[in-house]
Deep mutational scan, measured.
Amino acid sequence: KPRTPFTTSQLLALERKFRQKQYLSIAERAEFSSSLNLTETQVKIWFQNRRAKAKR
Rank of each mutant, 00 (worst) to 15 (best):
K1V: 07
K1L: 08
K1D: 05
K1S: 04
K1N: 15
K1Y: 08
P2W: 01
P2M: 08
P2F: 05
P2I: 06
P2S: 09
P2E: 15
P2R: 06
R3D: 15
R3G: 15
R3N: 15
R3A: 14
R3H: 11
R3S: 15
R3C: 12
R3M: 14
T4Q: 09
T4F: 11
T4P: 04
T4I: 13
T4R: 03
T4W: 05
P5T: 13
P5E: 14
P5Q: 14
P5R: 03
P5G: 06
P5F: 08
P5S: 11
P5N: 11
P5Y: 12
F6T: 01
F6L: 06
F6D: 06
T7Y: 04
T7A: 04
T7N: 06
T7G: 04
T7I: 06
T8R: 10
T8H: 08
T8N: 12
T8G: 06
T8C: 04
S9F: 07
S9K: 09
S9C: 09
S9T: 10
S9I: 12
S9W: 09
S9L: 10
S9H: 15
S9N: 13
S9P: 10
Q10S: 02
Q10N: 06
Q10W: 00
L11V: 10
L11S: 10
L12Q: 14
L12R: 08
L12P: 01
L12N: 15
L12D: 15
L12A: 14
A13Q: 12
A13Y: 11
A13M: 08
A13S: 06
A13C: 08
A13V: 06
L14A: 01
L14S: 00
L14C: 04
L14G: 00
L14W: 02
L14M: 06
L14P: 00
L14D: 00
L14I: 00
E15V: 02
E15W: 06
E15L: 00
E15H: 00
E15N: 11
E15S: 00
E15R: 00
E15A: 04
R16H: 14
R16L: 12
R16T: 14
R16N: 11
R16V: 14
R16I: 08
R16K: 15
R16M: 10
R16Y: 10
R16A: 15
R16Q: 10
K17G: 03
K17H: 05
K17A: 07
K17E: 04
K17D: 00
K17Y: 06
K17Q: 07
K17V: 09
F18R: 01
F18W: 07
F18H: 03
F18K: 01
F18A: 00
F18C: 00
R19H: 11
R19V: 13
R19M: 14
R19S: 15
R19I: 09
R19Q: 10
R19G: 13
Q20T: 12
Q20D: 13
Q20W: 04
Q20S: 09
Q20F: 06
Q20P: 02
Q20N: 06
K21A: 13
K21N: 11
K21S: 14
K21H: 12
K21P: 01
K21F: 03
K21Y: 04
Q22F: 08
Q22W: 07
Q22M: 10
Y23V: 11
Y23S: 12
Y23M: 12
Y23P: 02
Y23D: 13
Y23Q: 10
Y23R: 09
L24S: 01
L24W: 03
L24E: 05
L24M: 09
L24K: 01
L24N: 00
L24H: 03
S25L: 05
S25E: 11
S25M: 04
S25D: 11
S25Y: 03
S25G: 08
S25F: 03
I26C: 12
I26H: 13
I26Y: 13
I26D: 15
I26N: 13
I26S: 14
I26G: 14
A27Q: 11
A27R: 04
A27I: 07
A27F: 05
A27G: 12
E28H: 02
E28I: 01
E28W: 01
E28A: 01
E28F: 00
E28T: 02
E28V: 01
E28L: 03
R29Q: 14
R29V: 15
R29L: 15
R29Y: 15
R29C: 15
R29D: 05
R29S: 14
R29K: 04
R29I: 14
A30Y: 06
A30D: 09
A30I: 14
A30N: 12
A30E: 12
A30P: 04
E31N: 03
E31G: 02
E31R: 02
E31V: 04
E31I: 07
F32L: 13
F32Y: 01
F32V: 10
F32C: 09
S33V: 03
S33P: 01
S33T: 03
S34H: 13
S34G: 10
S34E: 13
S35I: 14
S35R: 08
S35G: 09
S35E: 08
S35Y: 08
S35T: 07
L36H: 13
L36V: 09
L36Q: 04
L36E: 09
L36N: 07
L36P: 00
L36F: 09
N37K: 07
N37T: 06
N37Q: 09
N37G: 11
N37L: 08
L38C: 07
L38S: 04
L38D: 02
L38V: 09
L38P: 00
L38Q: 00
T39N: 11
T39R: 04
T39C: 10
T39Q: 05
E40Q: 03
E40D: 08
E40V: 04
E40H: 01
E40F: 01
E40P: 07
E40M: 01
T41N: 14
T41Q: 12
T41Y: 11
T41A: 11
T41M: 09
Q42S: 08
Q42T: 09
Q42L: 10
Q42D: 14
Q42K: 06
Q42P: 00
Q42G: 03
Q42W: 04
V43M: 01
V43D: 00
V43F: 01
V43S: 02
V43K: 00
K44H: 11
K44F: 07
K44N: 13
K44D: 15
K44R: 09
K44W: 09
K44S: 12
K44M: 13
K44Y: 08
I45C: 13
I45E: 15
W46T: 00
W46V: 02
W46C: 06
W46R: 02
W46F: 03
W46Y: 06
F47R: 03
F47G: 02
F47M: 04
F47C: 02
F47Y: 03
F47H: 01
F47N: 02
Q48C: 04
Q48W: 05
Q48S: 06
Q48N: 06
Q48K: 04
Q48G: 06
N49P: 03
N49G: 07
N49S: 10
N49V: 10
N49T: 11
N49K: 04
N49F: 05
N49L: 06
N49H: 07
N49M: 07
R50T: 07
R50I: 00
R50V: 03
R50D: 03
R50K: 14
R50F: 04
R50H: 07
R51Q: 11
R51T: 04
R51E: 08
R51C: 02
R51S: 07
R51G: 11
A52P: 02
A52H: 06
A52F: 05
A52G: 10
A52Q: 13
A52L: 07
A52K: 05
K53I: 11
K53C: 13
K53S: 12
K53A: 14
K53T: 13
K53N: 15
K53Q: 15
A54M: 07
A54Q: 10
A54Y: 07
A54H: 07
A54I: 10
A54T: 14
A54L: 12
K55A: 12
K55L: 10
K55T: 10
R56N: 15
R56T: 15
R56M: 14
R56E: 15
